[in-house]
């Protein structure tokens, strides 16, 4: 130390050297992640933004800048209103159901019941299956003339709805399949959250004479809030992007009843090959998801108690 004090130039050099080494460590840890994000997320995002201003058809050598024309076209697209409404309905109902049913499942399977582990596994299985495979199985379950639901409803004297060919039933059908697939995931996360709540809080509440409902309301729910926050965020984002089930089961139909933003993006981009307009929908999705994330970080985070 004496040495460095006497030679300021030396000390700066050493400081730079130490800094350089710290930068290297930082790069080694953050670099791969940043590089992956740059290659697979930021570059496509920027490219998508650029494409949204072009008239490219993904194949022609012609790629002209058309300014905001694609944005104008999307605003004037007669199907957009329905598509946005479908997206909001699908996302809100599927997220709400996943959160509520998942909470129920979590509370139930957190009890010391016989066969609990088996039940947890069964509930989680749909989550690891491919969405396309699940969708094909559900096409059979929903079939109004020989499907499983028809078989169950028939003895009760109830006609099975024409799930996938009736515009009023198609979206609920898609929501059912989506919830069935993601319920297990939410349940498992809830169980983890429930197990992280300290047991002495319940004991203290019990000593104070709190009823089961009050224990749930004042201990369980606040204790679960970080988990719920996480689940709301991830469910909204993933339901926005849900494409596989819709593509296999309904292809956005009947009569656009299940056409959501992500499916409309596919139609415009890969059926009509109007990649510019598909790019606009990509940007709309990006902005919506970004807004949801910001809103949640800003407002929801405050009410989360990290007990």
């Amino acid at each position: 130390m004496q040495n460095t004090a006497r030679h300021p130039a030396n000390s700066i050099r050493r400081l730079i050297k130490r800094d350089w080494r710290e930068w290297l460590v930082f790069l080694a840890f953050a670099g791969p992640n940043v590089a992956l994000f740059a290659i697979f997320t930021y570059t496509p995002l920027i490219n998508n933004l650029l494409l949204s201003f072009s008239d490219w058809n993904m194949i022609s050598a012609d790629k002209n800048f058309v300014g905001l024309q694609n944005y104008v076209d999307i605003i004037n697209d007669s199907q957009m209103g329905k598509v946005l409404l479908n997206t909001v309905l699908f996302t809100s109902s599927s997220v709400l159901l996943v959160l509520l049913l998942g909470l129920g499942g979590g509370l139930l399977l957190n009890q010391k019941l016989r066969g609990r582990n088996a039940a947890r596994s069964i509930l989680f299985t749909p989550n690891i299956l491919s969405g396309a495979a699940i969708a094909i199985v559900w096409i059979y379950i929903f079939d109004p003339r020989f499907g499983l639901i028809y078989t169950v409803l028939k003895p009760l004297g109830i006609d099975s709805p024409k799930w996938l060919t009736d515009p009023n039933w198609a979206l609920p059908a898609i929501v059912i399949v989506y919830v069935w697939k993601y319920l297990g995931y939410a349940t498992v996360i809830y169980i983890a959250g429930l197990q992280a709540i300290p047991g002495d809080l319940y004991e203290a509440a019990r000593v104070d004479g709190a009823s089961a409902w009050m224990r749930f309301r004042h201990v369980t729910l606040p204790g679960l809030s970080p988990v719920m926050f996480f689940l709301i965020l991830t469910s909204i984002l993933s339901s926005f992007q849900s494409f596989d089930i819709i593509n296999v089961m309904t292809k956005g139909g009947p009569v656009n009843a299940t056409n959501t933003l992500i499916y409309r993006l596919y139609e415009l981009g890969f059926i009509n090959f109007a990649i510019g307009r598909a790019g606009v929908i990509g940007m709309v999705l990006f902005v919506m998801m970004f807004a949801v994330t910001l809103l949640q970080l800003r407002y929801l985070d405050r009410q989360v108690s990290y007990a």
């Binding site: 060919t165 515009p167 139909g253 009947p254 009569v255 656009n256």
Partner: peptide, 8 residues
Amino acid sequence: DRIVVGKE
């Protein structure tokens, strides 16, 4: 589809 199923 809109004409036949949607009855538009």
